[in-house]
């Protein structure tokens, strides 16, 4: 249970950074935290006590394995995270070039 609580804690750290911090880069770091929390949670989901991993059929051997599928899925999720982080950073850079600031409270040209 404790690993899952750590994930939740990490997720809340990230959410805190996104909601409270005013600097775009800090918001992006907070976003990365949230993403890692979800990925970590998914990776933990591969282990179940006294359960058999799906691919290996020999029960004695299978008890020593964790389910490999979540790891493959997390790898995919990390790739997606890479793309989103890169795009966010690129947007933040362009915003800095236009507004000359990373402060979210001063980036308010759109109203409504």
């Amino acid at each position: 249970m404790i690993p899952f609580l750590v994930c939740v804690l990490l997720f809340l750290f990230g959410l805190y950074a996104i909601v409270v911090k005013r600097n775009l880069i800090k918001m992006i770091i907070g976003f990365c935290f949230m993403e890692y929390a979800v990925n970590l949670f998914f990776a933990f989901a591969g282990f179940k006590r006294e359960a058999l991993a799906p691919i290996i059929t020999d029960p004695d051997m299978a008890r020593n394995f964790v389910d490999p599928l979540p790891q493959a899925l997390v790898l995919t999720a990390i790739v997606i995270g890479l793309a989103t982080t890169a795009l966010m950073l690129a947007l933040a850079m362009r915003i800095y070039a236009k507004y000359k600031t990373f402060d979210i409270t001063e980036i308010r040209r759109l109203k409504g």
Binding site: L91, R94, I95, R109, L110
Partner: peptide, 11 residues
Amino acid sequence: AEELEAGFKYM
């Protein structure tokens, strides 16, 4: 400027 701002918010 506005488009980047909207894009970031949306993202």
